[in-house]
Design a protein around this nucleic acid. Structure first.
Lengths: 173, 173
DNA sequence: TCTGGAATAGTCAGTCTTGACTATCCACGC
DNA sequence: GCGTGGATAGTCAAGACTGACTATTCCAGA
């Protein structure tokens, strides 16, 4: 259900970390996977601690400001596995975004629609090119499967978009 | 960007409506398109009125409780077209849900993973069957394109899931 | 005619999310 | 020996979202 909580539990399952470290990792490596913002991650970490899924202890490195280090408790590990099982079965209502716009597309002049969809296609192409550059991950197959999954869906989207644009271009109806 | 606002503007673009009516329509016909809840719709309608995109006037039918009827203003129509254009180009970060779970899949025993993905596949199959029943919509091509789009992505997802399950089943790695 | 359940029409308190902001530390050039 | 820009490590107020709840009306059946 809650992909954000699952993500944080998952990151903590590898090693204890403090908030800043986790946010760094997300910003650098997981921007494509989640759009969660810093403040949200801090809030969820607090919640995990409050609910007994993570323990906190404050650490001071040199003269730096103190950091709160979060570690999964046994309950937290159980929670992680539970959410993980759930998320494999039911990846949350995949209300594919963008379809609302599609539904109302008749309200816009046909050439504006085509123009817009062309731009959309260009972006999808970019995303595909980017993902195709990602090297195999190495540790386990999960990450590679996730990338593969995203690629499969993006390619299907691309092909469909091309078809639609062609159809709209030829005789406008 | 904000699909919810776009959806409400779009519904109002066809005719003025009161909140309850809009929520009825969403619950009955658009459950697959959005997961927006009643209270959210009321809140967004308020916001639209506050920002001058919709006008409100109170109506009393018989002895029933009074209702607030919302109608698009010219500014609202402009806003609608603007959001519509945007959403065609950039359908919001399509962070395809479920990929977080995939990423951590190595943390779960292989057979639990396979079991989970089988259930997921069954659900996808159901959704496809359901959508295939939807008859052509009639008014314009937008709605039909949206359905087609969803179907295309669901089928790609289904095919990928089948492949993954087969791979995992045969030699567990 | 009386009653219980569905339809009508919302509201509200609590939670979640985020843009903007704070504050310190360190390395480096000048 | 000093300023300043990036890295470090968060916090906070404001707005968005929703589950649970309220309250009235209508109507079908006993």
């Amino acid at each position: 259900m809650d992909e954000r909580e699952l993500l944080l539990l998952g990151l903590l399952s590898f090693q204890s970390q403090h908030g800043y470290q986790i946010n760094e990792f997300i910003e650098r490596n997981l921007a494509r996977v989640t759009s969660m913002k810093k403040a949200t991650a801090y809030a969820i970490l607090d919640r995990l601690a409050r609910d007994g899924y993570a323990s906190v202890h404050t650490e001071q490195a040199g003269n730096r400001p103190p950091r709160k280090v979060y570690a999964l408790t046994p309950r937290g590990e159980e929670r992680f596995r539970e959410l993980l099982r759930q998320s494999l079965v039911d990846p949350g209502e995949s209300a594919i975004p963008g379809d609302v716009g599609l539904m109302f597309l008749d309200q816009l002049p046909r050439d504006e629609v085509i123009e817009g969809l062309r731009m959309r296609l260009a972006r999808v192409d970019e995303q595909i090119a980017e993902l195709e550059q990602v090297p195999p991950h190495g540790h386990g197959i999960g990450v590679d499967l996730a990338v593969e999954h995203k690629l499969v869906l993006l390619r299907a989207d691309r092909d469909w978009l091309r078809g639609v644009i062609t159809r709209l271009d030829a005789g406008s109806d």
